[in-house]
């Protein structure tokens, strides 16, 4: 028998990942379930759900969760409605100004975002959009355009045109081809983009804070204010554990899409 050789590169990356990602998560996770943890003890003196009760008893936490969920849902939905047809047009149609327009979507992301946001905030102030739900929707929508156009464009472009022609050949109308061939082929990639979009919007803070304050408070914004204003670490820790939830849900969905095999097939595998 040959002894399996130690994969040092793999081990190194695993170790690095542990330090950079898992370790901080572990600490925050521990803090969230800690009642008392005083220096210099390595492990908390007292575990417990005291601060969970305290955090979830706060009304502002619940309103911010609902606010974040509805913002992310509305933004994702609007973004899909606007971007997917646009992506299809970019991928398939020739129209004047196509390349410039496509490039402008990318260019929007190339500049420092905060400066852009401040400028937009000035405009929104005049339009009375500051501190309103739709003001935040608008600003977050702009932030999603890049990936919701770029990824679907790539997905549509990678669908084999011959497959679509073959469907026309056996009698499918263009609409039917889109529904039965193009969407199933591009679908998994687009679903991934929508998922990323949802999670990204949920976590978005700069726009939500700059445009939304003081009327609109999302979960991440609330968490930041907790961390800044509260001497008790646990509040922030509990909220940040709460914030992992959408990521876990997204990962579960992603697993289902990838695990079903349609993901690989969508890439022609």
């Amino acid at each position: 028998m040959i002894k399996a050789r130690t994969d040092w590169t793999g081990l190194f990356f695993a170790a690095a990942l542990t330090v950079v990602i898992v370790f901080p998560l572990l600490i925050v996770g521990t803090w969230a379930f800690t009642n008392v943890w005083r220096y210099p003890s390595v492990i908390p003196q007292e575990f417990g759900l005291k601060y969970w009760a305290a955090t979830t008893a706060r009304a502002d936490v619940w309103t911010s969760i609902t606010m974040s969920l509805s913002l992310a849902s509305v933004v994702t939905l609007l973004s899909a409605v606007i971007c997917l047809p646009a992506a299809f047009a970019f991928a398939r149609l020739e129209f004047p100004g196509r390349n410039i327009l496509f490039f402008s979507f990318l260019a929007g992301q190339a500049f420092p975002k905060f400066g852009l946001l401040v400028a937009i905030a000035g405009i929104f102030l005049n339009l009375n959009l500051i501190g309103t739900f739709w003001g935040v929707i608008l600003i977050q929508l702009v932030g999603t355009l890049l990936f919701m156009i770029w990824i679907p464009v790539a997905a549509f472009q990678s669908v084999d045109r011959r497959m679509e022609e073959a469907a026309r050949d056996v009698g499918a109308s263009p609409l039917r081809v889109f529904w039965s061939i193009t969407m199933p082929q591009a679908g998994p990639t687009i679903a991934a983009a929508v998922l990323l979009n949802f999670v990204g919007t949920f976590y978005e803070t700069e726009g939500a804070w700059l445009i939304g304050a003081p009327g609109i408070r999302t979960l991440p914004v609330l968490m930041i204010s907790f961390i800044n204003n509260q001497p008790v670490i646990q509040y922030g820790a509990v909220l940040s554990v709460l914030l992992w939830l959408p990521s876990f849900i997204a990962l579960l969905f992603a697993r289902r899409i990838i695990g079903s095999g349609s993901f690989a097939r969508g890439f022609g595998g």
Binding site: D160, R162, M163, E165, A166, P184, Q185, G266
Partner: peptide, 10 residues
């Protein structure tokens, strides 16, 4: 019938 068979992989 296309050169690249163009079967629907899904």
């Amino acid at each position: 019938v296309f050169q690249s068979h163009a079967l629907w992989t899904h």
